[in-house]
Design a protein around this nucleic acid. Structure first.
Lengths: 196, 196
DNA sequence: AATAAATACTAATAACCGTTAGTTTTGCAA
DNA sequence: TTGCAAAACTAACGGTTATTAGTATTTATT
């Protein structure tokens, strides 16, 4: 009989993915070689192929993994009966928390999706667009219910998503602000700017 | 006597820089080859070296060119006697205008500065930090003069800079919104969120 | 201890990279 | 037309890349 598991606590593949994510973030996907990645786990580059399909597959897993996380959370929000204000607040907080707890993956997904193969790239953009549309719908709902000012939902979504995305840059001085203070400030700034 | 100019309207080097900027934006610096760049002007890759020093030098010129533009504008703002609100408003509008009128260069500067050589990278980060500090000072001044709410200036600056940076993503549907509407919406959103 | 699967290794591949050297062509000035 | 510099070309360089093939070694179960 075959034995597949290599370690009790997480497979070797997971370790590779984690190290790949860290390297891709620091140096970029193209600028990271498999030799370099292998070195982080003290093996030779060709040995990686006992666990992975290709370098490109690593990027796919990272990008679509992050996309899935955001899409799933968005679905729970959409299904809830909360106000548009509460939905928006929760989404903003989720973005902040994700960047804090899953920094490398989120960063790589945001920066390196262009390096996906043609087919994967198309699929990625479709998912991204769907997420954005769901976001726009929440804003639209808030405008209809007179909770928000009259504004351009698309521009507003872009402003909010871009603002939270920028937390990437806080990584170097992460310890200066607690995540709670960060959430409070940004939700305050971004929501009071549009609430009536 | 020597003749240096190749074209009446802008040197050949400028054309190379422009095409390089466009390619670096679309594919990334590492993913763009000099052969590919040469192809955009129907010459062979080695011929580029009659005009440029190296591939790395192209990225340098792009990144530091953009940095200079922003730094220079910041200096005129700092020197003015306007209120912190007006200063902030003008800076936000400048960011939006720059992305509109100099998209490729701004994008490349924002995304590919990590690929600068060690020495240039250090210098780039110094300039970036100085720009950020000047921004923070304006916010601080506004807080002191009771124009703004009590808030964390650094988080506020990060939020604003990130938000305007996100306009990169509007490039694909640039024609949906005029730059005036865009400016109005974003200034409104980002300023009323912090003004008392 | 024996067996078999998982996983490491070395060696080698073809492709591509930025860049240099050396040479030819081009285009303008005299 | 001649001369000269600017700028193109071809050929080739050393280096690096992801990946494959084939083989040895480690690991775990029987």
């Amino acid at each position: 009989m075959a034995k597949i598991k290599t370690l009790a606590n997480g497979s070797k593949k997971d370790v590779i993915l984690k190290n790949a994510s860290a390297l891709f973030r620091k140096k970029g996907f193209k600028a990271t070689s498999l030799r370099e990645l292998a070195e982080t786990m003290d093996i030779e580059a060709p040995s990686l192929y006992n666990h992975i399909d290709s370098k490109a597959a690593l990027l796919e897993e990272i990008c679509f993994g992050v996309a899935k996380d955001f899409t799933e959370y968005m679905n729970t929000i959409i299904g809830s009966k909360e106000s548009a204000v509460d939905k928006l607040s929760k989404l903003i907080r989720f973005h902040i928390q994700k960047i804090y707890t899953d920094f490398d993956n989120v960063f790589v997904s945001n920066h390196e999706w262009k390096q996906l193969s043609k087919k994967q790239l198309v699929e990625f953009l479709i998912q991204r667009k769907a997420y954005e549309n769901a976001f726009v719908e929440i804003i639209n709902d808030g405008v209809k219910k007179k909770l928000f000012k009259t504004l351009h939902p698309q521009i507003t979504v872009l402003t909010i998503l871009s603002a939270v995305r920028g937390l990437e840059f806080l990584h170097s001085h992460k310890n200066e602000f607690s995540i709670e203070i960060l959430e409070e400030n940004m939700v305050q700034h971004l929501l009071t700017g549009i609430i009536k």
